[in-house]
Design a protein around this nucleic acid. Sequence first.
DNA 1: CAGTGAGCGAGCTTCCGCTTGACTT
Length: 776
Amino acid sequence: MAKNLLIVESPAKAKTIEGYLGKDFMVKSSYGHIRDLVKTDDAIDTSNNFTQRYEVPAEKKAVVSELKKLAKAADTVWLASDEDREGEAISWHLYETLGLDDEKTKRIVFHEITKPAILRAIETPRGIDFNLVNAQQARRVLDRLVGFELSPVLWKKVKPSLSAGRVQSVAVRLIVDREREINRFTAEAAFKIVAIFHTGNAKELFKAELPKRFVEAAEAERFLADCIPADFVINSLETKPSKRSPAAPFTTSTLQQEASRKLGFSVARTMAVAQRLYEAGHISYMRTDSVNLSDTALQGAEQEIRSAYGDTYHKRRQYRTKSAGAQEAHEAIRPTYFDQHTLGGDNAERRLYELIWKRAIASQMSEAEFEKTTAKIGVSTRQEELVANGEVMRFDGFLKVYFESTDDEHEPNLDNDTDNALLPPLTAGQQVHLNRMSATERFSRPPARYTEASLVKKLEELGIGRPSTYAPTISTIQNRGYVVKESRDGKPRDYRVLELVGGTISSQTKTETTGAEKAKLFPTDIGVVVNDFLVEHFNGIVDFNFTAKVEKEFDEIAQGMKEWTAMLHSFYGPFHQEVETTTKHADRATNERELGEEPGTGKRVSVRIGRFGPMVQIGSPDDEEKPRYASLRPGQMIETITFEEALDLFKLPKKVGEFEGKEMTVAVGRFGPYIRHNNAFYSLPKELDPLDVTTDSAIEIIKDKRQKDKEKIIRVFEENTDARIENGRWGPFIRFGKQNVKIPKGTSVDNITYEDVVKWAAEDEKKPKKKARGKK
DNA sequence: CAGTGAGCGAGCTTCCGCTTGACTT
């Protein structure tokens, strides 16, 4: 039996460290927290100084009993959980739960997994820091009190099973607020002037822009007209060197953002893939808020840069964290071995690894150097000057390996594609010649909706949530139905373009798509109701600064300057009072709206959340006639639906005639509008409004779908008409009655017999079905 | 892939932060 038992939080870490320490040390993992508050409402006795009841959850029993056994047999137990609030608490819980001895227990910390760091830690053990433990308890108790007192208020005033909490409720609020900003926004149009000049040599073209925009079309046209007889001269020419520096290596949050922008990963996917890379030993720990690199890493990067790119490309850099709540228990995310530029195997793992490698390497490289040239071009008939910008890269530096993207995912600006291009050689006073000029109507843009990753970024800025909870929080607010991640089509919008070519001005109207969204977060009606209720009654909790405020107090507790139960008392008193009065006096939360009266009948048209979701109701239960109901469509919200849109919902489903002796019905389902005929579904083409479907167009769609289905069939089995082989999206498969059967790899489609089909279908049946996703 | 739109009411739901697991498609 080993003389020393060293306990860390992560099993992968344990394996690495064991390699550093040799035979006298056995290194084991606690797999995170081993103890938590009991799951019931009586976990905290608020009338008795917040006494807590802890338990070892069922899934942790095995780990605890193994550690207990090993601890008993060891001479010394080294508690090496992370150096932060949660880590300190884990050490304390281990100490208590394993029944450790003061004499044989040592607490050590390190924030990088390198041999020297760990040996140094072992030489300088300390005791458990109870101030830090108390700060963690205050954090844990406050979160439980907030969550478990607030949620039941929602069950009573809104709907059962809902939830609220210090983190998730603010995340929802951000999304609701943003949606309202977008709804309130009205786009303003203005004309942007862009000119193409040449130097006299027709090949030397360059672009210039007018720094200001014209609100009125007439002003823009006037400008173009003035330019017809004008002379153009380079009034001034300025050349300035400029530099760009690399970004810091990844933290959890920046990794999630870049993987979202560059690879299109959801934050959950990024974390799952990173976890695999970590467990395989390719990268350092992926849940971190630190941008710091260990000396070992700095040396590894330096060596790699010097040998792969040359000495001039290396520049040693230490980064400082910008986020306020950072606890920096780990290193930044970096490759374990910098000489490994890429990985084989799984595509997602390879791409994420390369991203991490490039970012970490680039962070230790030299600046990129540019020369920026600005030419101002005078117009003889006007006061204004046009401006041409050119940029030449003198030294690529870190850009050799990495280019950071930005969050601006708006529609590509058609006129900007030549920005920062090369300018031809120019001199001050030189005359240049107009090739063409355009005035294009451009619109101001509303604030961007959040993606999962940009929401994480915002939460981090506010100091809300931790690296280990960003991804789960994003999932929670979606699982609760407060928020949906969706792509939505945009709407066409006309814009005007005036063009000056060859001395004449022409005008035309073009169309662009605006407001299209891909994988963005939208609030739901229930999200809006819950948010508004919380903002009205518990503004203190959903305030964006609430976490920052309590974090400051947790810090004071950690420094021994404040007593943790005193802090909780001063918070809980007023909070609990608010819960009581709200429960007693507040009205049920609703966002019901009255839209008007139905033409003809005068019946009341209203919209609210019903048992099956948001709906429109015409009439009231007191009327002789029963009220009529219709559900809102995806993308429609109670807050924004118009009277006309609400009435339109009652026009479907609609019978559109007969075909082959059976009725055809147009309706809108979960997957969009469709025609139902003879128990089969036919989706409508995107551009066709379901209200416009006629008998003829419906028949056309049905015939078209049948034809396409026919083309998909590769083989039929003569007399056995219940089976056929079709070409699917992922290659051929067998349709066997209602069952889809996979064709085993390496089987040629031509050799399959009907007996094979029956056999494979039976095998497929036996396999357990995949569980439904999301909430129960 | 529809439309549906209650009212007896037991007992349930819920937080945030640490960690991975054991299953398939």
